[in-house]
Every structure is written in structure tokens, then in C-alpha cells.
Design a protein around this nucleic acid. Structure first.
Lengths: 211, 211
DNA sequence: CCAGTTACGCTACGGCTCGTAGCGAAACCC
DNA sequence: GGGTTTCGCTACGAGCCGTAGCGTAACTGG
């Protein structure tokens, strides 16, 4: 599994190499255009002009707008989303919720993420691209958070009877709640809200184990 | 508050009235086109042709694609989303989750909802339209569910110290989790998953009250 | 019944974006 | 240097957008 930035570089080690600078400039220009124009108003011709690159160059590397935007946004998630170790499950959840909300509040991600997910409903390759570049990284954080909580004794250790879909549900609840709060309800995710969500989840997870 | 179907009918009772048949035909054609082409591929010219209506007629009633799609989808939510009374909070939540997931699995809503919400991030009037036509109706269900649970004695009655944002959070968690499960994780919301989410929430809400 | 008003279908248009093709020049490997 | 691939540039047909103009249809008030 190679990292995503060079999108389709199945080189054969001959000929003129693709410019890494161009890649960076294009992705940066894409984020810039997203801020100013939104997803709907973004045109590939405009992105090429901003990046100081010919439109044809852009089409040689990305199939279309959707894929380009996914890659442009994915870099932000890679850089900024991590799980802080704050000493308790509740605090860890609060922390990651706040970081995730911060990401969603950036104008280049707000409009881009939803639009791309929407397009992906009828586009399987795009769905995989989103999964690889963004979703899987987030999902990993749930696993990490649970393992930490088990080490602390906040959650019972695995005994072999766990439902493998349990972490997946927690992931959907955490990510989905934050996205919905920010994008649909258009209300802020502050420390208080994040803490209350964390409290709800900690209590709820306890209830799942008791059942 | 008039119902939404006739979009901008500030009549003055004179002249030829707008055809209600045309409204229905346009909204129906929009849903049909959404299924076949998705949001991105949908064009207003195509919708007009399907509806047997001139393109200009369509533009006289809706400002653009986004608003048209919101109205086309809103009708489905009005018809099909309700809160069944199943005897317990847990069962009620499971029931509404399943109904909501069923709606999200319809091809005309899958792609349309997310795309419209994405566009709305940089379009305040569109955001209000979505709120009025879709979100507020869902939010009301949370209130109804809580009141039923209080009557049953499953939740303590209000004592005046409630946080008014509590219902809002529950709403974001329920709707967001389902949307994320269906749209991002692309995995099914079956009875088992819905029940486990309901269990998580019931336990979590109990934890909120205890704190 | 007729004049006024509004909606309708139709056609046509300029403007924009798309995605591709063709060219010569540049950069890299053997 | 020869082969190969990428680059920037220009140009192009195609499609959709949103609007204007026109004659006609439907409904209302006098």
C-alpha cells in the first residue's frame, strides 16, 4: 500500500518523471478553490490556472473532479486527525471529537467531504478511494481508543465473544454525530457538547457490555 | 405556515393559475432522474423533458437545481417518516432508525440528500429550505419520543433544570449515526444494528441523567 | 363578453465548462 | 544521441446553463 499523493504513478523508470511540485501545487490550488468557490463552483480549468499548470496535465493524473477533491482533502486528515491520550476514555473521546469538528469547520473540508460522499453513492471506485484515503484512518482511532480503555481497566478485556461490528458502530456514532451536528444542524461543537457526547457514549458502551 | 409543494405561489388571484399537475409532474420527474442519473448528472433540461414541461416553466418556479431537489425529496420524508409507538423507548428508537434507514436506502434520496447538504454549506437560503422541509420534521420526533418515554416512566419527568440542547444532541446522534452507517460505511442498517444503537442510546441517556 | 393579467410552450441565444486531440519542446534513462 | 514520457499550449465539438422573446392559453373582474 503506497501513500496516495502520487495518484497513478505506475512508472517504468524511463522518460521524463512527473513533477512532484506540480502535484503539490495542484492539490493546494484545489483546496484554495474549494474555499472560494465551493465544490459545485469548482472547475478543473480554474484549478489548473491557479496551480500554474496546463489543464491537460491535470487530466493526465486525475480522472475527474471527484477524485481530485478526495485527494486534496485527504491530506488534511492525514496531518491533523489523531487520538490524544488524555487519561480516560471520556476525555479521549471528547478530544478526538473536538479535533474532528475542527477539521469539519475548515471551509475546504466542509463542502468537499459531503459532496464527494454524495457522488460516491453511484460510483464504486470513488467509494473505495474515500475509504482508503480518509475513512479507514478514522476507523483505526476507535480501535486504538478501545484498547487504551481496556488497558486502563475502563472496559473489560476481550474474552472472545465480542461482536466484531461493535467498533464499527461506535465509529459511525462518533463520526456521524459530529458531521450531522456541524453540517446539518449547523451548530457548533464546543467542549461542552463534545463532553456530553463522550459521556453519552461511555455510559452507553457500558450498557452494551452489561447486556 | 403553508405546506411546501407549491414553491412560490404568492398569488394575487388574477391571471392564469399555475398548474398543480405540472408541479407534481416536475417533482416526480426529478425523483426519477435522480434515480437514473444521480445528483451530479441531473440536468434541468432533462427534468423538464421528462415532466412534459417547458424548461422555462421550471425556472419560473424554482431558482435552481438545489432547491428543486430539496422539494422533490422532502415529499418522501413527509410521507414516510413517523415514530411508531412500540411500547418502550428502546423499541421506539429501533423502529424510527429502521424507517429512517429505509428512506436513506432509496436511490432517489441517497445521492440527493448529501449533495444538497453539501451545497448548502455556502448557501444560507438553501440551508433554511432544508431545515424547514426536512430537518425540523425529524427533530420533532425526538421530542415526541422523549415525552412518551417520560409518560411510561422510563425517563424522569422534567424538573426545570433540563438543558434545552439535550434533545438536539440526541437528534444529531440518531440521524448522524444512521446517515454515516449508510452513506459512508456503506453497510446495512438491519434490525440487529438498529437495536444495538437503541440500546447504546437508552443506556447513554440514563448516564446523562445520572451525571 | 371583453379587457387585463398571468402562466404556458416553444425557439433561440451567448456564455461557460467539459474532456480530448495534436503539436513542439523539455527532462530523464540507457 | 536515441528512445520515452511528461510538459505547456492551443484548439475544438459537445453539452448544459439561464434568459429573452414571442404567440397562445387560462382565468378574473368589470
Amino acid at each position: 500500500m503506497r501513500p496516495s499523493p502520487p495518484p497513478v504513478p505506475h512508472h517504468k523508470r524511463t522518460g521524463r518523471p512527473r513533477s512532484a511540485d506540480a502535484d503539490r501545487a495542484i492539490l493546494e490550488a484545489t483546496r484554495e478553490a474549494l474555499v472560494e468557490l465551493g465544490f459545485g463552483g469548482l472547475t478543473l480549468g480554474d484549478v489548473a490556472a491557479r496551480a500554474g499548470v496546463a489543464k491537460t496535465t491535470l487530466y493526465r493524473r486525475w480522472p475527474g473532479k471527484n477524485e481530485l477533491v478526495v485527494d486534496a482533502v485527504a491530506a488534511l486528515f492525514e496531518e491533523r486527525l489523531e487520538l490524544p491520550d488524555l487519561g480516560s476514555l471520556r476525555a479521549d473521546i471528547q478530544g478526538v471529537v473536538l479535533r474532528f469538528a475542527e477539521l469539519l469547520n475548515m471551509p475546504e473540508t466542509r463542502t468537499a467531504l459531503m459532496a464527494v460522499v454524495a457522488e460516491a453513492t453511484s460510483d464504486e471506485p470513488l467509494r473505495r478511494r474515500i475509504r482508503d484515503a480518509i475513512v479507514d484512518r478514522q476507523k483505526h482511532l476507535v480501535l486504538l481508543g478501545r484498547m487504551r480503555a481496556q488497558e486502563r481497566g475502563e472496559l473489560p478485556p476481550d474474552d472472545g465473544t465480542e461482536d466484531p461490528g461493535r467498533d464499527d458502530m461506535i465509529f459511525d456514532v462518533v463520526a456521524g454525530s459530529v458531521v450531522h451536528r456541524v453540517m446539518v444542524s449547523s451548530e457548533p461543537v464546543d467542549e461542552e457538547w463534545a463532553d456530553r457526547l463522550a459521556l453519552l457514549l461511555v455510559a452507553g458502551i457500558g450498557g452494551l457490555h452489561a447486556a
